[in-house]
């Protein structure tokens, strides 16, 4: 099946190699300039998810990706749509392929058998002709066998469109463009495994151009992949300045157990500081925040001292613990009567 569809894909274009001339050493004839044919620049195909699990209503990732936790031996269906916004009919081919998280990017896997998703997920049509300016509703079925091992799998439901071959003997390359809905399917007994991440030290620095930047490491400590977004705020700067929010730049997807570098490029006109800094990162409903005080170093390509974290300093927590300890013990020490009463009750037992 896979091989067949690949062969269909390979209904391709031609790159005429004037090797006869090449051997003769004569200059290749200029047989047409590169590319720009008569394609409509506005013609597009698209995919969109139409429904998601009710329990994930407040998770923004769940409305664009198929993110679910399923138990072995269960089955579910999801509606999705393929849109054709070009002015002509388009043959759309649908498929399900495995994906992987490589260098913090969610990308299709090179190995078509990288995981079981192509077997577990099926779409009710494999190919159809989408009329111009149409939306076609389709249905994907996820059927996980009872003996499926636990763990999270990645994949995508692909809708692909192939360029029309114009001239078999010409110097064309045919192209396939695919657009997909990501699948983050976790399999296992019981409920959803926890998602969590930690943010490392905030490191102030300056890049090649001398513009300030704040860097931190994000570590995925949960059991599901994360799609991170984040913002950084500066406040209490020199002269009471505040700035931000600045969007964080980071790899889009952090695998389980993986680490991603977050960088927040800032405006080079910002004074060195000291600043109070707050970084908030989130993935779906989960969010974490760190804050601290930092000063940007001078120069280019330099890194300063890590920000002094001030949100929950360890000594404050220790102090809180000691206070709690005192409060717990104090009544027994201070009131001998209370002590005697508790002792009496224990003795009666």
């Amino acid at each position: 099946m896979a091989a067949r569809s690949r062969r269909t894909v390979a209904a391709l274009a031609a790159l005429t190699v004037l090797s006869g001339t090449a051997v003769a050493g004569a200059p290749a004839s200029a047989d047409g300039r590169g590319g720009a044919g008569g394609a409509r620049p506005d013609g597009r195909i698209g995919v969109q998810l139409l429904e998601a699990t009710r329990g994930r209503r407040d998770d923004p990732r769940a409305s664009i990706y198929l993110i679910d936790h399923v138990n072995p031996g269960t089955r579910m269906t999801r509606r999705f749509a393929v849109t054709n916004t070009s002015s002509g009919p388009q043959r759309i081919r649908l498929s399900v392929g495995p994906a992987e998280i490589k260098e913090n990017e969610f990308v299709p896997a090179d190995d078509p058998r990288a995981n079981e998703l192509p077997e577990w997920v099926t779409v009710n049509r494999s190919s159809f002709v989408a009329p111009p300016d149409s939306t076609t509703e389709l249905r994907a079925t996820v059927a996980v066998p009872p003996n499926a091992p636990r763990g999270e799998r990645y994949g995508a439901i692909w809708a692909a469109v192939t360029s029309r071959q114009k001239d078999r003997a010409g110097t064309e390359i045919q192209q396939v463009n695919r657009v997909g809905i990501r699948l983050y399917l976790d399999v296992g007994p019981g409920g959803d495994p926890p998602s969590d991440f930690t943010i490392g030290d905030l490191l102030p620095g300056r890049g090649d151009t001398g513009a300030p930047v704040v860097r931190a490491a994000v570590h995925n400590t949960g059991e599901r992949a994360l799609d991170m977004v984040g913002k950084l705020w500066l406040s209490d700067g020199p002269g009471g300045l505040s700035a931000g929010p600045f969007p964080a730049r980071l790899g889009t997807t952090v695998p389980i157990g993986g680490t991603a570098q977050v960088e927040v490029p800032l405006d080079r006109q910002l004074p060195d500081g000291p600043w109070r800094v707050r970084l908030r990162l989130e993935s779906g409903r989960l969010h974490r925040e760190v804050s601290g005080t930092l000063t940007f170093p001078d120069g280019r390509n330099v890194w300063g001292d890590a920000a002094k974290a001030d949100r929950y300093p360890r000594w404050a927590l220790l102090l809180a613990g000691l206070v709690a300890l005192l409060l717990a013990v104090l009544p027994f020490v201070a009131f001998p009567k209370l002590r005697a009463r508790v002792r009496g009750q224990l003795a009666r037992r």
Binding site: L15, T16, G46, V47, E172, Q174
Partner: peptide, 15 residues
């Protein structure tokens, strides 16, 4: 809405 990509056109390479 949907995530979209252009419908591709054939391309020409020049030797």
């Amino acid at each position: 809405g949907a995530l979209n990509i252009t419908v591709p056109d054939t391309a020409t390479l020049t030797t």
